[in-house]
Simulated assay, not measured.
Amino acid sequence: MVAREVVAEQGVNASMRDIARRAEVGLATLLRHFPTREALFEALLCTHLDALVQTAGGLEKSDAPGEALVSWFREWMAFAQSYRGVVAMMATAHANPESALYAACAAVHSASARLLLRAQAGGQARTDMNGDDLFGLMSALGWLVDLPAFAPRADHLSHIVASAILPNLPNLPSHGVAKRSAKPER
């Protein structure tokens, strides 16, 4: 799909006019099928978001709910890095029931909350947070690693946040993140 290519190159602020031109259709034709940018993104992202929610469903069956939450966090980060700007768009859509992305965002939020509740029930996750807090942290981190200066540190930053959410999970794997020295970077 041409729109997927353009958005992969330019992020969520890709011009609808540019998408139409590269698809060799008129802008009116594109807008007839996708009247808003969010409607276009709902079509582009629905497969990814459905797969993400299905992944959460599988993780909910894990005997290690803390590790399942860490896996979910990593899946989310991989998704968040798939399109520049998608996290900010989803965070906005999450609060707007009129948005074309609202249902998909609600499903991701709900999956996150269920995984958090399982980890809390297992005594592995902080109990002073809820699904809204987790979705907010995931969105904030997704937005942060969308910035070029922080993208190379995505795994490390994910590890730090996951460690804060799951303080009782022993030996939380860093997945290849180099150990940092106690000295501040210059």
Rank of each mutant, 00 (worst) to 15 (best):
S71K: 11
L45R: 09
K61P: 01
A78C: 01
L59E: 05
G57E: 08
L49V: 11
R74G: 03
E75M: 07
T47S: 13
W72H: 10
D63S: 14
T55C: 10
A78G: 09
F73K: 01
H48I: 01
K61C: 05
E75D: 14
D50E: 13
L44A: 10
L44T: 06
A78Y: 04
V70W: 10
F79L: 15
Q54H: 05
A43H: 15
L52N: 06
L59C: 05
A68G: 04
L59D: 05
L69T: 09
K61A: 15
S62H: 02
A64Y: 04
V70D: 14
G57T: 01
L49Y: 00
R74F: 04
S71R: 14
W72Q: 06
G66I: 12
G58K: 08
W72M: 05
W76D: 08
A51D: 12
S71N: 09
D50T: 13
H48V: 00
A78N: 09
W76G: 02
E75R: 13
C46R: 15
H48L: 10
V53T: 13
A51W: 01
E60D: 06
G58S: 01
G58I: 04
M77G: 00
G66F: 03
L69W: 07
P65Y: 03
L44Q: 09
W76M: 03
D63M: 01
G58Q: 13
W76L: 04
T47Q: 14
L45Y: 00
W76Y: 15
A43R: 15
L52M: 11
V70H: 04
T55M: 03
E75Q: 15
G58Y: 06
F79R: 10
H48M: 07
M77C: 01
P65H: 10
S62G: 00
E60I: 00
P65G: 10
L59M: 06
K61H: 12
F73G: 04
D50M: 02
D63F: 00
H48W: 03
C46L: 12
F79Y: 13
A68H: 05
T55S: 12
G58E: 12
W76F: 14
M77K: 01
